[in-house]
């Protein structure tokens, strides 16, 4: 226990650097995942059949073990000289984020009270106005819950990205294992857990702020 504390104190600079790397990786991946998943999820509410297929595919991606996914991407991305490192890690995390983001967006928009939607159309809102003024604000808490889930999950999976040289806190675990240094492995694991807990807490606050006041009883 003392070893662990000493190790973490002595190496706080590098732990800090790895944490920032880790967050950059996850942050970029989730940002891109939202940019893809949010419009896709909204679009799927207008196309039931496609929705079924897309959600199935996202489900299947979720079941691929991360280490296998990295393995698959090495030959594919080698074509553009990015077989290992940051790029395949970000792509993998984007893929894993799709399910919670698309699914939550799809479900949230679909579950907006039909009376509210009917009123919005009946008052003469066009599709964009209806989405921006009524449907997305009312769906936002559930969409944000999906984003939170994606972020926390990606912080965990991001640890494995160190095996393909993408950096981040996984480096401590990776090196600890090869050096049989349990303290180092533990330090990495604890740092990742803390990072996940803190990030989730912050996103929770953000989610609360983004929830329309009208929902807070």
């Amino acid at each position: 226990m003392n070893d662990l504390l000493n190790y973490m104190l002595e190496n706080q600079t590098s732990i800090w650097t790895y944490s920032v790397e880790h967050l950059q990786l996850v942050g970029l991946a989730v940002f891109i995942a939202i940019a893809i998943g949010l419009p896709l999820g909204i679009y799927l509410t207008t196309n039931e059949e496609l929705a079924e297929t897309v959600l199935q595919v996202a489900n299947i991606i979720m079941t691929i073990p991360s280490i296998a996914l990295f393995g698959i991407m090495i030959p594919i991305l080698s074509v553009i000289n990015q077989g290992i490192g940051f790029v395949p890690a970000v792509i993998a995390l984007i893929l894993y984020s799709q399910l919670p983001i698309i699914r939550n967006t799809y479900v949230a928009i679909n579950n907006v009270d039909p009376n509210i939607r009917d009123a919005a159309i009946g008052l003469g809102m066009n599709t964009m106005q209806r989405l921006l003024r009524v449907e997305i604000p009312n769906a936002l808490p559930i969409i944000m819950a999906g984003v939170r889930q994606a972020v926390v999950m990606n912080i965990g999976i991001g640890a494995i990205a160190a095996f393909i040289g993408a950096g981040g806190l996984g480096v401590l675990i990776n090196q600890g294992i090869s050096r049989s240094n349990t303290t180092m492995v533990l330090a990495g694991a604890i740092a990742i857990s803390l990072l996940a807990i803190v990030t989730d807490g912050l996103l929770g606050l953000l989610q609360k702020r983004m929830t329309p006041k009208g929902f807070q009883q």
Partner: peptide
């Protein structure tokens, strides 16, 4: 246009 369950937008004042 007025409907039965008023259809007020819960996110708006």
């Amino acid at each position: 246009y007025v409907i039965q369950h008023n259809g007020l937008f819960p996110n708006m004042t």
